[in-house]
Structure formats: structure tokens, C-alpha cells
Amino acid sequence: MIAVLGLLVGVLLGLFLEPSVPLALQPYLPIAVVAALDATFGALRALLDGIFDDRVFVISFVSNVLVAALIVYLGDQLGVGSQLSTGVVVVLGIRIFSNVAAIRRKLLHA
């Protein structure tokens, strides 16, 4: 319940405040989104497994986004930002795929 409330508040905040992303942070937005999606799908799978824990979700969500942004930032400083972004997206993408596959197995038994 509280999660749905938070979701609603977040959507409304994003829609009405229309925070413009500074140009310097532009490249981190897609990475942050992918990292957040990874955490979300992990949480969804844990929920279906019956082992969901909100503390773990919060920590994994925050740390995923931060670490992904940090890696890309480091890559930018080293001049290999786009390559590291690709690496992060690939790793997180694989994790998302395997989580979704687990969710699918759980839901559809296939």
C-alpha cells in the first residue's frame, strides 16, 4: 500500500515539477533508469518467491543506481564513458532478462 502511494507521489512529482535534467547529468539518466529497472524486477521476483524484504529492496535500488552512475562517471573521466555505459547496460540487461525469466517461470510455469 505504502509502495503504491510512493509510486503515485513519484509520478505526480515527476509530471508536475518537470525537473529538467542538467546537461552534465544527461548521460546518467538512462543508466539510472536501467539500474532502477533491474532493482525493480529483482524485487518483483523476490516477491513472487515470497522472500521480498523492503530493506533489501531500498538498499539494492539505491546502490544499483549509484554504482551504475559511478561507473559511467569514472568512464567519462577516463575517456571510455560510452564503452563503460554499454558494459553497464549489458550487465544490467542480462540481469533483467534472467529476473524476468524467473518471474515468467513462476507465473506461467513455463
Partner: peptide
């Protein structure tokens, strides 16, 4: 949890 979901929602919306 609420903050995390709100942050997630803000991220996706933005």
C-alpha cells in the same frame, strides 16, 4: 520503501 518507490517513479517519469 515509500521513498525508494517514489524515487523510482520520479526517475521513470523524468
Amino acid at each position: 520503501l515509500a521513498t525508494a518507490t517514489a524515487a523510482l517513479a520520479v526517475l521513470l517519469t523524468v
